[in-house]
Design a binder for these strands. Structure first.
Lengths: 180, 180
DNA sequence: AAAAATATGTCAGTACTATTGACTTATTTT
DNA sequence: AAAATAAGTCAATAGTACTGACATATTTTT
């Protein structure tokens, strides 16, 4: 009686653990719900100080991440309407967190960027969330990080996946021990 | 002067060898944002048919998951106020998706459960989201699933982690669907 | 040059979710 | 009997987002 090869063992293991029970899928739903709730709740205290809401946070975040983004591009990223963005963006501009300049190449366009004040806010908001993520990353290790990324990427609509692919496509390797 | 324990040495080693760049952490923030947005968007079309919103979805989901849950427990899970829940829960009860009965052991309590109609809605809503998750799970494989879970669990506030431990650990007695 | 399309901005009205605060009723615990 | 707990309700407010309609400036197409 022959023994299984390593490959066969792996295949069997995959088959067994890939049996996706309703229980397992519901667990994933709940993980997402609680993780997202706690993750977004992180910045709320800071936002309150500025009398801003989560919509302001998202706008600040994505302008910070994509300097010189246009209004239309921002709408595409956030998937909200122009009217919804207007309120939030207007406040951020009025209060000096975001600045607009006309694109010289196409004068219909307004290029959006954070002011130093806006960068400061972005940094403050992102720091908290980053700490939470860093904690989870460090506790779980590089393999887990790779899996986390792969699955979340798979949950994103195909059209938007490229947005999160960042500058490196070799998922997993970028977290490995430095210098070795 | 005391020496480091093995655990401390390990922690120190991890801290030194793993470099979490701002870029990596921002990528995680974006993964969460897009994945959660697309994941929750999945059920919207169905909810529209019933003229319900996402709040109704969450309530149906958690009652389905925890039959005989009380109002207070549901508030603790959802972390919203009683007044917020009242509107949504009232509608669900009025329209026959959720039923209430008085707890015989403590007649102040109302035990909540889905009616067959409510179960049908829950199933319909969960199916879509489960398919999305199953797709990502199957594409990424068991190791990735494990990592995904570990990291998301690490993002959840410590108090609530037990809620998502599911079949692995004994869940907090406050929510379990009674028995012992 | 005129027409069409694009990018942005704005006004008005509506819906959903969620909040704080105050108060009531019923029931159980102290 | 008093205090605490569980649930329900009323009123007012805020934040986010939507649809629809329309205006202006600029660029592209015809």
């Amino acid at each position: 009686m022959r023994t299984m090869t390593d490959t066969e063992k792996t295949a069997a293991a995959i088959n067994q653990s890939v049996e996706l029970s309703e229980e397992q899928l519901r667990q994933a739903i709940e993980l997402l719900f609680f993780a997202y709730r706690d993750f977004t709740g992180e910045a709320d205290a800071i936002l309150d100080e500025y009398e801003f809401g989560r919509a302001h946070h998202r706008v600040v975040y994505f302008i910070g991440r994509n300097p010189e983004v246009t209004v239309t591009q921002l709408l595409a990223i956030l998937k909200i309407t122009k009217q919804s963005l207007a309120r939030v963006l207007g406040q951020l501009i009025d209060e000096g967190f975001v600045e607009q300049r006309t694109d010289a190449a196409d004068r219909r366009r307004r290029l959006l960027a954070l002011t130093p004040k806006g960068m400061e806010l972005d940094k403050q908001l992102t720091k908290r969330q980053s700490l939470r993520i860093a904690g989870a990353y460090l506790a779980a290790g590089p393999q887990a990080i790779s899996g986390f990324r792969q699955i979340l990427r798979g949950l994103i609509n195909a059209e938007d996946r490229e947005r999160v692919d960042g500058f490196f496509t070799d998922i997993g390797s970028d977290i490995s021990p430095k210098g070795t």
